[in-house]
Design a protein around this nucleic acid. Structure first.
Lengths: 338, 338
DNA sequence: TAAGATAGAGCAATCGTTTGTTCAACGCAA
DNA sequence: TTGCGTTGAACAAACGATTGCTCTATCTTA
């Protein structure tokens, strides 16, 4: 058992409060140099570290944050987590990681548990539109910040990218390459990124005077297998697309798998654009053209917003929206250098 | 502020301890049916959840575990984490994630912090040989389990694979394909996997009557860039290897990048074998031949061992060692089906 | 020398639960 | 009526730290 304040007090023949004040270098109270030195020596010798649980109870602050995401094995969220940890660790926080696998029930159960643990704040990256969990967080007065996806437009602290603009860039790129049947592997309509990226896709088509063909939009979700299934559906159309814009890179990877199985050449037979620019995108063959967003900075920005709430009690919801950039690689341009 | 026991007690005109016993369904003490119902109704109505911090202080158990790894963006560790969470969440635990980036200082600082927080146990996957941090954990009597890497042979709770056997399999595979100059991208000699996989590599060479050429062993570490650098060194030898066994898949990916830059065909000009079989391995082109280990089960097994210590107070160090299997793909066999 | 200021450290309440012990009231048998 | 066994719930002491307040010396100063 680690040493306690009381034990140290007994050994130094002083009151526990005195030891506490020395350990915390309490500026408000003077301690005689002699006793201070004696106690400090004891602190070093015993390597005293205050019990974080007791401290959390008294101070009503645990220095624990939580990150709630769909799945850490998705490289996007792994990068995001690193950003958050890198942004909060220097301030003495530890971070709980909770995976929801996209299940609203698991999300809620995690949040309940986090609340009971009195975490100081939550980064929520698994939210969907009109999410009751977000209202619940607000009601419980738990500091939180939404990342990548939002729930109610404009009302919550948020870090993300301009999804409409990003999707517009991606689609316009394909149009400029001469494609006029462009499929979209869409995210769920219940998720902000799904809704907005679809909107950007349609806007780009409209701006180019291309008719939007509902057949060319297939809900695929955010994982590889959903992307593969939806791609198969699109490619089995009577008049299949020659290019595909996928709502995320992971979704696009599903397209790669199908294209390979069907012996379609990328990009000659099928051009592909993704979204997020996860590290994996540049390692695919051919490299995946995608919409770049600063994943790690999503995390550090979210960390800053959250800590501002926790430590400074900031109340006005901050929003950080990054402007996405198109990164062209071999999945759309055949003579792209390796 | 969430409701407390004391407030509920006041509302029900009973003592807090009575509410506590109702909430916990304390079997040892009888409560009159009437008061029990009254209190239970109140518990539902207010959605009372005990304050985890206060509970942790009293019970000396926090239901928080920690996972210490080099880097969550490495898919191996992401999969491992999922295994751990999947194995512990059903028992009511939350999990802190700590990245060390391989720095011994960061590892120690994380462990100090975790100890101060009174986490119930630690999964340590970033240890090295003869690691003082492991002795420290033992001394502090913090339940722990080592994963993938061990510190002192045979003395700690451990989950991993038979590294020597796995490396032997990989190297023998290359020998059977006719290679006789086989390079090894080695892990650090200070890490058990580095040491043992190198040993397995040498054993396979010896068994085949091939001389071990020290020039063919290049320390590469466990990340892509180290793998790339070491590959360049090997390939610029007077008599370069025709095949490479990399200590991990991520290291092997560095080799892919170099081979591509140098216009070497895989496997015709350079055959490659990795270790771990991360999901990415099968998505590379060509697919990476590698030594498969059950990553997710590493996590669930570690979870079980840790919980046995925490909940049953098990003291005898358990060891779970999986037998690795070779997975052959296109990086060693050119006519491998896509 | 008396009064007031100040330095230094102890006191005690508190954060929210848990749990062994005590205690009052009631029922029932002798 | 006395006494004893039960029942049901209150009491109170932790768990380990923090912090406003009190209190006693000692020191200034007039």
């Amino acid at each position: 058992m680690p040493v306690t304040l009381k034990e140290l007090a007994a050994r130094a023949s002083v009151h526990p409060s005195t030891v506490s004040r020395v350990a915390n270098r309490d500026p408000k109270l003077r301690i005689a140099a002699g006793t201070r030195d004696r106690i400090e020596a004891l602190l070093k010798e015993t390597e005293y570290r205050p019990n974080g649980v007791a401290r959390g109870l008294k101070l009503r602050q645990t220095f624990v944050l939580a990150v709630v995401i769909p799945d850490i094995t998705n490289p996007f969220f792994a990068g995001l987590f690193r950003g958050i940890e890198d942004g909060t660790a220097p301030h003495g926080y530890n971070v709980l990681l909770c995976n929801t696998d996209g299940s609203i029930a698991r999300q809620q159960s995690h949040l309940q548990s986090l609340n009971a643990r009195r975490v100081d704040g939550v980064v929520l990256a698994s939210t969907f539109l009109n999410d009751p969990a977000v209202r619940w967080l607000r009601h419980q007065r738990i500091p939180y910040v939404l990342v990548n996806r939002f729930s109610d437009e404009g009302n919550d602290p948020f870090v993300g990218s301009d999804d409409v603009a990003g999707a517009y860039l991606a689609t316009r790129h394909l149009i400029e390459l001469g494609h006029n049947r462009i499929g979209h592997l869409a995210g769920q309509a219940t998720v902000s990124t799904g809704m907005l990226r679809r909107r950007g896709y349609r806007a780009a088509l409209a701006a180019a005077g291309l008719a939007a063909d509902p057949e060319l939009e297939a809900e695929a979700g955010y994982a590889e297998d959903g992307g593969a299934l939806a791609t198969q559906r699109l490619l089995s159309l009577d008049n299949p697309p020659t290019a595909i814009f996928a709502v995320t890179d992971m979704t696009a990877i599903g397209t790669y798998a199908v294209a390979r199985r069907m012996n379609l050449r990328i990009p000659q037979d099928l051009a592909i654009v993704g979204y997020n620019d996860i590290p994996l995108a540049s390692r695919l063959i051919p490299g995946l053209t995608t919409v770049h967003v600063p994943i790690h900075e999503f995390g550090t920005a979210a960390a800053r917003i959250l800590l501002d709430q926790v430590e400074k009690g900031e109340v006005s919801p901050k929003r950080v929206v990054f402007t996405p950039e198109l990164v062209v690689r071999g999945s759309t341009v055949s003579d792209f250098p390796v």
